[in-house]
Amino acid sequence: PEAADLRALARHLYEAYLKYFPLTKAKARAILSGKTGDNAPFVIHDMKSLMEGEQFINCRQIPILEHQQQTSALTLGHGGITAAHPGSEYGIMGMTSIGDQGPTDAVELRFFQSCQSRSAEAVREVTEFAKSIPGFINLDLNDQVTLLKYGVIEVLIIMMSPLMNKDGTLISYGQIFMTREFLKSLRKPFCQMMEPKFEFSVKFNTLELDDSDMALFLAVIILSGDRPGLLNVKPIEQLQETVLHSLELQLKLSHPDSLQLFAKLLQKMTDLRQIVTDHVHLIQLLKKTEVDMCLHPLLQEIMKDLY
């Protein structure tokens, strides 16, 4: 009976994951391996293709994503799909029209702002996923906030991994592939933002987790009882322990030949904290050096006094 409960928990979290996250690993890997036929992503590899990218996406059909059929159409207002709406005020990933861009210096900043819009939307998706973890909404509300504040960037980095390979990353819900070299060619410090995530993701992807493994791992990350400022640690640790058992069982069943996968996965949580610390420091540096930059209020809330 205990194992049956753990399997039921795994199924529940997998369903929540499918409901709230629009681009699954299975779909992303199909796109990256060219198995989607005519729907190959548009490749952005230089400034010219960056400009063409917006034009390209304007001509494409808006894919109907499963979870978005259930959510408000307004959700699309801040995501990459918005770019497909003719006459939209947003472009790629919510970017203001690239066609009438100003000085080249502003390109990076505008792209960064569009990434912020998508990130804020992703934080909302992760919040909904967290709320679906059994017991999460019964925790002290202040502790729920703390768990999200400290966990959400880690979750987003894990979710970015399936979208990446050694050569680049899918953006805009899988409709665009942006090359790693192009991201590296942006001016400093923008060129430094994605490289650590590529390095992490390439290694993380060798673990070959599937979407149902990912769902459990994300829940484990969210339920970390050692986040600073938690008021009532015990119930959080109890919830995490149950999810950890479910994850361990899941990995044994779905990856019987992968030795020590559970241990390897838990070790990734240490690497993640360092990546988030470095990321936040980079954002703080940007705030000082880029006078025109404004940080999204939700991201500001999350990053303030984080590390």
Binding site: T71, G77, A120, E121, R124, T127, L148, L298, E301
Partner: peptide, 20 residues
């Protein structure tokens, strides 16, 4: 609570996507 107003709202379902 004021420091994390939007997160509180998201958790309590009082923020619509458009507010983001």
């Amino acid at each position: 609570k004021e420091k994390h107003k939007i997160l509180h709202q998201l958790l309590q379902n009082s923020t619509s996507p458009v507010d983001l």
